[in-house]
Structures are given as C-alpha cells and as structure tokens.
Design a protein around this nucleic acid. Structure first.
Lengths: 213, 213
DNA sequence: GCGTGTGAAATGCTTCACAGCG
DNA sequence: CGCTGTGAAGCATTTCACACGC
C-alpha cells in the first residue's frame, strides 16, 4: 500500500531528522529536507502524507515530532532483530555500521562456515557455526537476515533461512534467489550497479555532446 | 534513451550468459533467462529489443552471440578504469570481487587517508595517499570512482573527484552528494535498504493475514 | 504449437499547479 | 506573501495480447 520508494525515502528522512534533532534544529521546511535527501519539495510532502502529520505553512515541520512519528511508523516496538549470514568483508563492513548507527535494527547474531570464527565475538556480535543456523534463528525469533556469502551457496542457505522463519532477506550474493512469495528479498548486486554507473556516465556524456545548445 | 532498469538487467543477463557459455549451453529461451534473472519472459524480450539481435522461435537465442552483443553494447573497448576511494571493509569487499569477476571494469588504483596503507598492494591494487588523488586520476584517465569513506568526508572528496574528471560515482557513504549535473551518481545506502526490507517484510505479512482467502 | 517481437493498455511513481491558511 | 496538502497530469516501466514464422 505504501509505495516502495516512499518507504526508502521515509527511512532516509528519519535518519536525517535524527541528526538534525541532535544538532538542535527545531523546525524544517519541505524544501530543506528535500535538499538534504536529494529529492524535490513536492516529493517530500507527498511522502509525508502517509504518516498524517501536519506541517505549518509559516514554520514547516517540527523536527522532533516528525522524527518520532516516522520512527513509530517505520520501526517495531523495541526494534527488529537481524541475523548476519557470512562474516566476510561485506559482513564486517555492515556490523559496526548497524551496531552503532541504526535505531530500529539490531544484528544480534552472525553465522559463518569458517569454524575458526565460531564462538568469537565480532564487534560484540557472537558468531556461530552454520550448523546452528535454524536453531538459533528460531530460538531468538529473528525475522530478518543479511545474506553475504558466495553466490554458489546462496540459494541453499536462503532456503534454510526461510524454513527457519525468516521473512525478509537483504541479499548481497550475485544470484537471484528463488523463494516462497511471502519472503521479501532485496538484492544489492554491487557489480551490476557499478556497471550501470559506468554505462550511464558514458551515456549522459554522449547526450551532452550531441545536444550542446 | 535506454531505460535505467533495462541497463541493470542487461548487465545481469550478460553476466548470466557468460556463465552459461562456460557451462556449455548454446541456446536459451526468454523464459529460461527470465527465471535465472528473476524477471518475466516479456521483460527479457523487451530488454533485448535495444540491442537488436533476433532470436529464433524454435531455438531461442544463441548464448554466445547474445553475450558478445551485450558486451559490445555495455562495455567500452578495453574496459573502463575505476578508482576505489576508501579501503575500509567495504572497499576490501569490492576489490577481489571486481578484480576476478568483472570483465568490463578494472579497479586500477585505490586511495586511503590512512598513511600506513600508502604504497601497499591490496589484492594487487596499489593504494595511494589522498594527496595524490587528483594527479593520479588525471594521469591514468579514470572516469569512474567508488566512494567508500565515512559520511562526513564524502561531499568534500566527491567534489575533488569531479574536479579531477570523474563522471560516474558509486557512493556507499550515507549522504546525498551535491554535484554538477553531468556527474552520474548511484547511491547504495545499505542501512536504508535493510530498513526497507524489515518494513516490507512486516507489511507483506500483515497483508496476507488480513486477506487470507 | 510454441516462442519471438512489439503495439497498446496498465501500473507505479513523480511532478505540476493551485486552493487554503497563517 | 510563502509554504503545506493534494487532485490531476505527466513519465517511466511493466505487462498484456496477439501477429508472425519456424
């Protein structure tokens, strides 16, 4: 019901507002928030319609109130627990980021097939063996997983995650996962995105040259 | 002119076709490629219209020919050179991936403000100091950069990159970059995406419960 | 019959433009 | 006035549906 892109931007706004609140800003106009987020003022206002909090024409929006309302809308009470599967470089990049930065999500456990990592604390997060995957996820009641393992293992492990009760996956493995419809999968395929950047950069350059005036 | 999403998928197809060619597959139907890529058959056919290569109703597409044609369309002759700015965990995750996996892009130099990394080879890629940024990029003629540094430095470094001739940036810093219009920026904000996954997973669960039959 | 290529319809998302209000 | 809230218009992307050819 809420547009996907809007959910992304609301999360972004929420983040920005938290920073603004910390730095003492009390009110903000749609065009200011738009500039920070890289959106248009109309877009910001449209997005904010879904949370039904009125701004004032003379003052804009109350930063603190807006941030509270957004958190309420986006996050569950107490925050969601997340499992990290695969503690390679990507996993290690994500851990500190979420542990310190994100209010609504906590990475509470990680898994790796490398036995040496088993039992170790990485950024305060216990690493378990892959054999404990289902049991640990079930016991802790985790619904969200980050999949950061080699492509060839991705499908199999993703299926195990779903069987263990996972309903949302952030997938970094460059493979399309075939999973039941009720599971929400979001792919981050960095290779594809970098290639898109290269292509689009070239394209937009070409367009400019072709139509100089 | 070519739709953005199509560019992404064409890259994905190209990747998949390379694998298929290696494994000896000679021809492929749109519905097979669609399944591998997580798209629909109609979408695949629509995407392939832009490269004007005909498939055959009885046999489908010639894998090798299609892959060649896609590479030709997507990549520049000899490949594009890429700079990696910030050799933290994200940077280290990307390096081996692109060095071994991507045909059209080569990370040829990296930069880090940590002086200890200066002059070292990381996965065969020389790491330079931030003071050498402009000069190195200009000399080697690099157009594409990956920005994987802390948010607070992102804007300033991005501006330096643009002044050095960069026209495409893949940005991992959780900040919207304000840059000239001719520079193509693609953001990967993992935090925002993970939060979206959590939200959408919850939403789609709720919808299913509300409309069970 | 079965799959391709493609106009035309449908969907989803963004932007415009303006009424309403402090 | 300048900014918010929002119908309506405009774009981008996806899906439908069917003519054509092996």
């Amino acid at each position: 019901m809420v547009p996907e892109r809007t959910v992304e931007r609301l999360n972004q706004y929420c983040q920005l507002l938290a920073d603004l609140a910390k730095s003492g800003t009390e009110t903000i106009f749609s065009h200011e928030l738009a500039e920070l987020a890289g959106a248009t003022p109309a877009q910001v206002r449209r997005d904010l319609m879904v949370i039904e909090l009125a701004g004032q024409a003379t003052r804009g929006y109350d930063v603190k109130r807006l941030q509270e309302r957004l958190s309420e809308f986006l996050y569950t009470e107490g925050g969601d627990k997340v499992a990290l599967v695969g503690v390679g470089n990507i996993g290690r990049a994500l851990l500190p980021y979420f542990l310190t930065y994100r209010p609504g999500l906590r990475i509470v456990v990680s898994f790796d097939k490398n036995k040496e990592k088993k039992g170790r604390l990485l950024h305060g997060c216990l690493c378990r063996g892959m054999d404990e995957l289902e049991k640990a996820i079930r016991n802790v009641g985790i619904r969200i997983a980050i999949l950061a393992i080699p492509a060839e293992d991705a499908q199999e492990v993703a299926e195990r995650l779903c069987n263990a009760g996972i309903t949302g996956i952030l997938n970094f493995a460059p493979r399309h996962l075939m999973l039941p419809d009720h599971v929400w999968v979001e792919n981050i395929h960095m290779g594809v995105v970098l290639e898109k950047v290269a292509f689009m950069a070239r394209e937009s350059l070409r367009e400019q040259e072709e139509a100089p005036a």
